[in-house]
């Protein structure tokens, strides 16, 4: 088996905070990391290698030179080789151009080290959050596309079939398809191991293979980088901080509390139902009898000052 894992070095957007005074992004102390979902992809690939000895795991990334650190981390976890596709010509790519370059890189990986049976991507990146690069690569390379996979049930290298469990909103879908396939993985698929010391030592000494645009003589230069990216950022802004109503519910609208728990409960629902929440959550609110003031009590008498 030959498994390719696509990874990206990203700023750990979970660590970005908003300065409450200036309402701007605090970028200090935001480390560059391997996109967490991609790490689960590397882990899954290494597990496949452990299951099928002789499997080769190649990691591919597109990014600046500094992404070498991310590739080394993948090596420390057990990947065999790592390729960094890095060139100014690739910079500024959106998901369409990125999936084009990565699919070309995977073709080249296959040319050099043998046909690829499985490509694994994280379900999305922490910075872009789009989840489109995986499907993009699958489409371009005509691989079977399996997104949001939370478990690889079975791989049969002989029959060239793969069975996975896909994470959906309300359950798990079990899909079986042919290899070669592309799988995007969710965090729940596995627990990423801690690199062993030999892995760490191999990683710090490892120099990833770097390919520039010149290593792709056939590439269509109108489809890469900024030029090959149909989307642009029109404007970006920091949304106003969520303003919290900060209201203490006493159950007694317009009067001093405290009311009974039932009164407080009524007041809370009055408030919640007056917002957009019911539509957003999908609460089907039972029609309230007319003349009930919108928020009735069981006996039909209006709630104190019903604001709703």
């Amino acid at each position: 088996m030959h498994v390719v894992v696509c990874v990206k070095q990203v700023p750990d957007s979970r660590e970005i905070r908003i300065d409450p005074v200036t309402n701007t992004l605090i970028r200090e102390g935001v480390p560059s990391i391997v996109n967490v979902f991609d790490l689960h992809g590397v882990e899954e690939a290494v597990r496949i290698k452990e299951q099928f000895p002789g499997t080769r795991v190649t990691v591919v990334s597109m990014g600046p030179k500094s992404a070498v650190a991310a590739l080394r981390e993948c090596i420390s976890l057990g990947a065999d080789e790592a390729v960094l596709v890095s060139d100014r010509a690739f910079a500024g790519a959106d998901t369409l151009a990125t999936s084009y370059v990565l699919s070309e890189a995977i073709r080249k990986v296959a040319d050099q080290w043998g046909p690829v049976d499985l490509v694994i991507c994280g379900k999305q990146t922490l910075d872009g959050d789009t989840g489109q690069v995986g499907p993009g690569i699958a489409t371009r390379l005509k691989l079977e596309q399996l997104t949001y996979v939370e478990r690889i049930r079975q791989i049969d290298p002989e029959a060239r079939r793969i069975t996975v469990e896909r994470h959906l909103e309300d359950g798990v879908e079990v899909v079986e398809t042919a290899l070669p396939a592309l799988v995007t993985v969710v965090e729940g698929i596995n627990q990423v191991r801690r690199a062993s010391m030999p892995g760490m030592l191999r990683a710090v000494r490892y120099e990833p293979i770097t390919w520039t645009v010149d290593d792709f003589p056939e590439i269509d230069r109108t489809r890469i980088g900024l030029k090959g990216s149909p989307t642009v950022v029109g404007k970006a802004w920091v949304p106003e901080p969520v303003s919290r109503a900060g209201e203490t519910l006493t159950g007694q609208d317009g009067e001093e509390g405290p009311g009974t728990p039932a009164e407080v409960a009524r007041q809370l629902f009055d408030r919640l139902l007056a917002t957009e929440l019911p539509a957003q959550i999908g609460w089907a609110v039972a029609p309230v009898p007319a003349g009930d003031g919108g928020a009735g009590t069981p006996d039909g008498s209006p709630v104190n000052g019903g604001v709703a």
Binding site: S196, M197, P198
Partner: peptide
Amino acid sequence: HTDREDGDL
């Protein structure tokens, strides 16, 4: 000893 697998240096 370190807190990594196979971690002795």
